[in-house]
């Protein structure tokens, strides 16, 4: 009887451990679901910056072959700087009217107002969420972490294409960027990434 119980207990312990693992598995699962449905206007690309840049460039070129001149979409930009982070950050182009398929470049400006170097990550978020699939970023300062030296200010570009297949009922797309302090120390290596994006 006793060994029987131990066997049952053993099996249950395995289930419990699997469920502990499942808790962690929810993280990638969630990303997959977000990618498919666009929860919170969240983009998956943050984790895979360089790949996205290359892939975005390729997709953008394809989309640009079929510009829809008859349609105009209003794209708005806005910016937020997270708690305790003293950066100035604004969209130099507050909104642009674009034809789907047209490659468009807009500029943002960020300035580090502190006397310390800061490494920050811009998190994009887009509404309405149904539009996420139809918004292709070819180049973005959000693909990598951004380092600004003490007092440094810089323009940051965003190159994008709106997919001509964008559902007809969507006339306005709003894209928001929030800069978060990563809390990392500025390193030489990160400077390289920044340079890559700024080309």
């Amino acid at each position: 009887m006793n060994s029987h119980n131990k066997k049952t207990a053993g099996k249950l312990v395995v289930i419990a451990m699997l469920m502990f693992g499942f808790g962690f598995a929810l993280v990638p699962l969630y990303s997959l679901v977000c990618d498919a449905f666009g929860i919170n206007g969240r983009f998956l690309e943050i984790e895979s910056g360089e790949f996205t840049a290359v892939e975005g460039e390729r997709q953008g070129e394809l989309l640009a072959r079929r510009v829809d001149k008859d349609r105009t979409v209003n794209v708005q930009f806005f910016t937020t700087v997270n708690q305790n982070m003293d950066w100035k950050f604004k969209a130099l182009d507050k909104s642009v009217k674009v034809h789907p398929g047209e490659i468009t470049e807009v500029r943002f400006y960020a300035k580090n107002m502190t006397d310390k170097d800061v490494v920050a990550q811009a998190i994009p978020s887009l509404q309405p969420s149904q539009a996420i699939k139809y918004f292709t970023k070819m180049e973005c300062f959000c693909f990598t972490q951004q380092t600004l030296r003490a007092g440094e200010g810089r323009e940051m570009p965003l190159k994008f294409v709106v997919n001509p297949d964008l559902p007809k009922n969507i006339g306005t797309i709003t894209l928001a960027y929030t800069f978060f302090d990563t809390g990392l120390k500025a390193k030489a290596e990160q400077k390289k990434n920044v340079a890559l994006v700024n080309q």
């Binding site: 419990a16 469920m19 502990f20 693992g21 808790g23």
Partner: peptide
Amino acid sequence: LIAVMPVLAGAVTMMLTDKYFG
């Protein structure tokens, strides 16, 4: 309980590493 308490444990473990281990 066996199915969900470990998930809670996972959630707080993630909070722990977020807070103290970057």
